[in-house]
Design a binder for these strands. Structure first.
Lengths: 238, 238
DNA sequence: GCATATTTGTCCGTATGTATA
DNA sequence: CTATACATACGGACAAATATG
């Protein structure tokens, strides 16, 4: 508080919604790596070399290893003793498991969550975001909006723990999506389902919305699992 | 496969259910610390001094820090930048959040899980374990059996991810239970509820079991949250 | 199957910054 | 305000395991 301008950048940061909250180097590395994984910039199965990455990121091996441990518990990386860490490679069973948990969480949210302004607005925003992206034929953005939609569904429970669980779950699923980016229009058919679910929620019909979503998720699960299964019998899968 | 006895110790280990799988030092430290926390040997809010613990455990500070990172993501420890790591102290909101997730998972398991031999047997075993412990007036063991019961309920979904989520959730809840060990007979009234749920499951009535369990969990949530709240207004809570 | 190079696992020492008595 | 204790982060070392030719 020595400079008179201190207040200014404090409020600037506060306006961003994020408090100053300096973070550890390991946490910063986690953010970077999580983004890379989220964007599909590192393929599942890739080796995360300590030497190469620590040099590329400009941190010590020790610090990088701490970041690895955090991401291992987030299930984005796997650790093989004396072999190092690798980008997690989802099995078909993993895909089914992730969808099972999604169904449980999202259906519960629609049945038991508060179908009122704070949460319902987030739903509507995500639906509009998806339709706008579809209008621009931006399928990448359609996919992102779709994730926002499902995050918003879980968000109806207004529970930070469940929000985090949901976003972790979606991050894991992205490990499967990127493997199959040949089908970029994968999310497109779900736009109308999202719209329908949102309308039912706005009408206060959580039970009806839950039924639509349940059928929707089951369909998506099989579509993804089948395509994913097909990749495994594909010569390219090392 | 050089020795003719190879098959023997492979099957011996397989009989144990655990493959050889040597683990890293950090993972071993995690196991130790998790046990200590599970047993309530370190009170929530305690400082986990790097210097003291690394010396006590006979590992380097680097290795200990890796173990800390793993436990932070398991939500058993919290990391405060430049202040170190501390045993997580649950808030009353945390307790509500944990019970909300329990209700979602356990109720879903009873409604959608397979009410058949592999899973149902685990349920019955846990119920019997609890009643035997109550017969010996061993309330500690009653509590343990109760956790096994709920783990078995979630286990009806036969999903490893959900099993892990459930056991992590119960580990977190223990952080609250130990704070209130004045009420050692806390779990006792639930023995009959567990029995009732188990009977309904054995009769194939998942819906009925879910309803009993829902009421049960809601009651337990309020009882724990109230007692926990009371502790915060207590002078002892630092 | 073997010898070699590479990489991980783990430890130590230390300089710097931050919090607190 | 100072002093002390502690966490942060780095770099180097070496054994052990693994990958490579």
């Amino acid at each position: 508080m020595t400079t008179p301008l201190a207040e200014d950048w404090i409020s600037d940061l506060a306006a961003d919604g994020a408090l100053p909250s300096p973070v550890s180097t390991a946490e910063r590395i986690v953010d970077i790596l999580r983004t890379w994984l989220s964007d599909g910039r590192i393929a599942p199965g890739s080796r995360m070399s300590e030497e190469a990455l620590s040099r590329a990121l400009g941190v010590s091996r020790n610090t990088l290893r701490e970041a690895f441990r955090l991401l291992v518990r987030e299930r984005l990386l796997v650790h093989e003793l004396n072999r190092g860490v690798f980008v997690r490679r989802l099995t078909v069973d993993d895909v089914h498991s992730l969808y099972r948990l999604r169904r449980i969480l999202e259906v519960s949210a629609l049945r038991d969550g508060l179908l009122l302004p704070p949460g319902v607005n987030r739903l509507r925003t995500a639906v509009d975001e998806g339709q706008a992206a579809a209008g621009r034929q931006d399928w990448q953005a359609v996919g992102t909006a779709n994730q926002h939609f499902h995050q918003a569904v879980a968000g109806l429970l207004e529970d930070p723990r469940i929000n985090e669980l949901m976003s972790q779950l979606l991050a894991e699923l992205r490990l499967a999506f990127h493997v199959m980016h040949p089908l970029e229009d994968f999310h497109e058919p779900y736009l109308t389902d999202n719209q329908r679910v949102c309308q039912l929620v706005e009408a206060g019909d959580g039970q009806g919305a839950a039924e639509v979503l349940l059928a929707y998720l089951t369909r998506a699960e099989h579509q993804l699992a089948d395509a994913y299964q097909a990749l495994k019998t594909d010569p390219r899968s090392t």
